[in-house]
Design a protein around this nucleic acid. Structure first.
Lengths: 196, 196
DNA sequence: TGATTACTTGACATAGTGTCAATTGACATG
DNA sequence: CATGTCAATTGACACTATGTCAAGTAATCA
């Protein structure tokens, strides 16, 4: 929306993003970000009122950079419900590693900070809409498993595709990104598609 | 193992457990615990060197209280693999709400503290063994879906039964505990059992 | 020349963990 | 009774990180 972003503001966002991506979201302090942006710690507060606000702004900055909307184009263009499900998992699942650092920081912050919690919640709600659209495409094709309502199926897909689930499978279980994508797609088909 | 737990130590653990269960793991401070145990904040450190150590000790205390081992008896006694899978989900899934508060605190601490991370990791690894046993029972009955190796099936079940997944479904999606159990069992059958 | 803007420096408040030293009260033992 | 020990108390302090405030500087614009 609002352009007119000052050069320094952008430098701060770049610094924030870089450190967050690098360190996997681990303890990135205001002073770290300031140092990398080449300004004093206090100057950061001239642009962002709190750490939470900076983290939130960083996610928006990342979205702008990576064009999160465009990623969903193939999903929306899919001909069949099954294809759409696959495409959505591919798109979101491939986006996760890129946003993981910042997501982790925001999730941690959300434990204590309301602003951060709401920002995170909104983002996840957006993602949920993608899940719902994919599920509805299955319903349109009349292939959704009978045992799930649309809402419950959406809940399940949303949970399968959560960042925490991705973390557990790739970090704790050591799955490669490719394996994660392949298995998640197969799992989703098995769970949601009736005609197997 | 080591008995000889002093009365005060026990009071601290009780206080810790109570506050953690109550507040859902939200910001329970050393001073809160001390106050509830009826001693000074500094006195807590006479019994537990760090907050992390206290949290870890609290989980062990909870296990002793609730007899986490006994819960798995029905699972181990199950006749068929499918029954075992159901019984394991029932046992662990019912345990989650009881440990959720302390688990959340420990998970949050694990982000920064090595001691906490290792303690948590060990507990989750224990749980994973239960998953593996359930999966192996399916293999023994020759009903495990062909597409999963034992290890991958274990990974998937482990993730399905993670605390994060429970949190998402019951907290974010508003599922009741009963619905969570029912759906999780159904999902596990659908994913792992071939002869459907 | 003077005002405005962006930034700097240094000091400070606050919150929470963890440490330390000096002290108190209870109880046990020679 | 004297002594020592143990558990706990109090108060002070170090440390880390966020966030605030005031005073000063340097560049730019009118």
């Amino acid at each position: 929306m609002s352009r007119e972003t000052s050069e320094t503001k952008t430098r701060i966002l770049q610094a924030s993003l870089h450190l967050l991506e690098l360190g996997g979201g681990k303890g990135v302090r205001m002073s770290d970000i300031a140092k990398r942006a080449g300004i004093s710690r206090q100057a950061v507060y001239l642009h962002f009122p709190t750490r939470a606000a900076l983290l939130v702004a960083t996610t928006h900055y990342l979205d702008d950079l990576r064009g999160s909307e465009d990623r969903l184009a193939p999903s929306r263009a899919a001909k069949t419900g099954t294809e759409r499900l696959d495409a959505f998992i591919e798109a979101w699942g491939s986006y996760i590693p890129e946003i993981h650092g910042i997501a982790k920081a925001l999730m941690a912050m959300a434990e204590t900070d309301i602003e951060a919690r709401e920002a995170w919640s909104t983002r996840m709600q957006d993602m949920r809409e993608g899940c719902e659209a994919a599920i509805k495409a299955l319903v349109d094709d009349d292939v959704l498993t009978a045992e799930h309502s649309i809402e419950q199926a959406t809940d399940i897909l949303w949970t399968m595709l959560s960042i925490r689930t991705w973390e557990q499978l790739t970090r704790e279980c050591g799955w490669s990104q490719a394996l994660y994508l392949k298995k998640t797609k197969a799992l989703a088909r098995r769970v949601f598609i009736a005609s197997l």
